[in-house]
Design a binder for these strands. Sequence first.
DNA 1: CTGAAAGCGCTTACAG
DNA 2: CTGAAAGCGCTTACAG
Lengths: 355, 355
Amino acid sequence: MPARTPPAPKTSVAVTTTTKAATINDIARLAGVSKKTVSRIINHSPLVRPDTRDKVEALMREVGYVPDPMARGLAFRKSFLIGMVYDNPTAQFIVNMQYGALDAIRNSGFELVVHPCDSRSPNYIDGVRRFVQQQKLHGVMLVPRVSEDQALADMLAEVGCRYTRIAAVALDEPARMVVTHDRDGAAEAADYLQTLGHRDIALIAGPGGYRSALERTAGFVEALAQRGIELPKSRIIEAGYTFESGVAAAEKLLAGKRRPTAIFCGNDEMAAGVYRVALRAGINIPRQLSVIGYDDSPLASRLWPPLTSVRRGTRDTGRIAAAMLLQDSAEAASALSLHSVHPHLVVRDSCQPPG
Amino acid sequence: MPARTPPAPKTSVAVTTTTKAATINDIARLAGVSKKTVSRIINHSPLVRPDTRDKVEALMREVGYVPDPMARGLAFRKSFLIGMVYDNPTAQFIVNMQYGALDAIRNSGFELVVHPCDSRSPNYIDGVRRFVQQQKLHGVMLVPRVSEDQALADMLAEVGCRYTRIAAVALDEPARMVVTHDRDGAAEAADYLQTLGHRDIALIAGPGGYRSALERTAGFVEALAQRGIELPKSRIIEAGYTFESGVAAAEKLLAGKRRPTAIFCGNDEMAAGVYRVALRAGINIPRQLSVIGYDDSPLASRLWPPLTSVRRGTRDTGRIAAAMLLQDSAEAASALSLHSVHPHLVVRDSCQPPG
DNA sequence: CTGAAAGCGCTTACAG
DNA sequence: CTGAAAGCGCTTACAG
C-alpha cells in the first residue's frame, strides 16, 4: 500500500461530515433536555413546549442531525422502507411507477425497495411474505397485475402489513386503493372512433386473466353500444398484451375480405403488432385503417404514423399509492374519498374517418 | 365496527407465522448455547464446533428463524441495503439493470433500494451522500452516466461507502469496475458494414459528455480505419441519445445529394429517428440505406424492418456489479481480474450491401 | 409538558 | 471453541 501523508486539517464544516454522526444523546446534551424530549420532537408529538421545540429543531439543523432509521426501526419494530411489488409489465410502466413513488417519499426519510416477482409461480406469495416480514416493511404498493390477486392482499392483511393496490376498479376499501378507471379510457377511445364515423370496428383485447383487460374491453364495448354500434364476437380477439400476440390477432382481423376500418388495442405493444401487419399487407394507416392503443408509451410516438393512445398517468398513480402508505392511520381514516387517476386519450395521427 | 367472532384456533404451522418471530435469544435458549455462539453461526465464523453449528442451524431452520436486519444493522453500523444510483437512461436499461442486481442479492438477506437522480443538478452529489449516509448503505452500484463522474466516486470513497462503477472503460480499480467494452461493440458494427461492402458510411454519435458515446465513436472510427475506410468529419454528427436528436441528425445526413449508404447510431432511439426520416423521404431501409443501432432494446424489433443492433448484456452487468458489493473484502482483494461484459451484434434486417 | 429506566435484537471487546 | 457484559441509537411504558 502506498505511503500517504496524513490528510490536511479540515474546516469545521468538513469535520461535521467526516466525524461520527451526532446521535439523539448529543442533541439532548447540547440542548439541555432529555433524549425523550428530542424523541418527541422527532416524532412530531404535540407534547412539547413550542420554544423547546424550536430550540431543539434549530440545533438539529445546525448539527445536521438525522435520526438513524435502523435504530428507530428496531425500536418501532418497523422499518422505514416502502416495497413495490410487481409482476413484469412493461419497463416504462415500472420505471414511471417508481418515479411516482419516489416523488412521494422524497425527504420523508423513507426509501423504496423493489420486488419484482412471478405471479404464475406457485409460491410467489410466500416470497412476498418473507420480503415484508424480514424487512419489517412499513408498507407495500401492489402494481397490476399482482394488485388484482386477493390471496396476496389477504396474506398482507394477515401478517399486518399495510398495502395499497393499484387497479382498474376498486377491489378493496378506499384507504387501500388507487383506481385507474381503465373503463373510462377505453370508452373515450370508442367515442372518438364513433365520432370519426367508424362503424365496423374491432378490438384486440388483453388476456382475460387481467382485470385491466376486462375493464378496457367492457368500457369499449359498452360505449360503442351506447352510441348504437354493436361489436360482434368475431370482431373481438383476445391476445396477450405482447407485440407477437398483437401481430397474430391483426393477421386474423385483416385477412378477411371485409376488414374493419378501425382497431382499438388493449395496449400499445399490440397496436405495434397491428402496424406491422398493416405495413406488410400494404394497408395504409390511417387512410385505410385507424388504430388506437393504450398506455401512451414512448413506442406510441416512435411508430409511423404516431399512434393515438390512452395515457394512464402512471407516475401520479405511483405517487398517490406511496403517499397513502405514509399517512398515519388517523389521517387515512378521515380521507374516505376514493383515490383516482383518470386516463385520457392522446390524439396523434393514427386515426381518420373511414375511407 | 362490526362485531366479530374470535378467530378459530390455528394449526401449529399458522401459529408460527402469526406469533411473534423468534429472536437470537430464543434460539440460544432452545439450543442450550449462548447468544454469542448463535451470532457466530449467523456470521459464518469458523470459531464454532461443527456439531454445535449443525445443531443450531437445524433449529434455526425448524423455527424459521431469520436474524433481524435492523438489529444487525444497528450493531454493525451498516445496513443490509444495496443502492442503485442512476440518471435517467432508457426505462428498459434501468429495469434490466435492476433485475440483474436482484439476481445477485436473491436469498442473501440484502435488498435493493433505487435512487434515480439528476446529474445536471448542482447538488446531486449531496443528495447521494445523504442517501448513503442516512441509510448506512452496504454499497451502491453506479450506472452510466453517473458512474462516469469522478467527483461522485471520490465522495463515496471519502465517506467510506463501497461502490461499483459500470462504464465503457476501466475508470477505477478492478475491484470497483464492471467494464462494458462499448468500443468493441461499435467495432463489430463497423466490421459488419465494411464486410457488406459499404464505403460511404456515417455516424450519429451520442453526446460528447458521455463516455459510452466517446467509446462507441472511437471504436467505430478506428475499426473502419483499420479496414481502410476514412470517416470524414462531415459524416459524423453528434446528437443527444434521443429520438428527436436522431431525427435532426438524420435530416442533415440524408438531405445532401450524395447520401451515405449506411448509418451507425450510438443507440436505438436515434436509429428510430433515422427510420422516421428515411420513411418520410421515401428512402428504403435496407435497400437504399443500412442502419445499425446500439442497445438492442425492444424498440429494435418493433421497427420495420427489424433493426440490427448491438446487445449489451445489461442484466449480467447489473448482476456482476451487485455481486461484487456482496463479496467480503478478502475475496474481493483476491479477485484481481477485471469484471467484463462483452457486447455483440444482433443481426436483423436493417442492413444489406449498398445498391 | 418532561424525564429516568428498561428494552428492541443484534454485535463488539474482552475474558477464559 | 464458548460466554457474560456493555453498547449500537432509538422508543415504549411508566411516573411525575
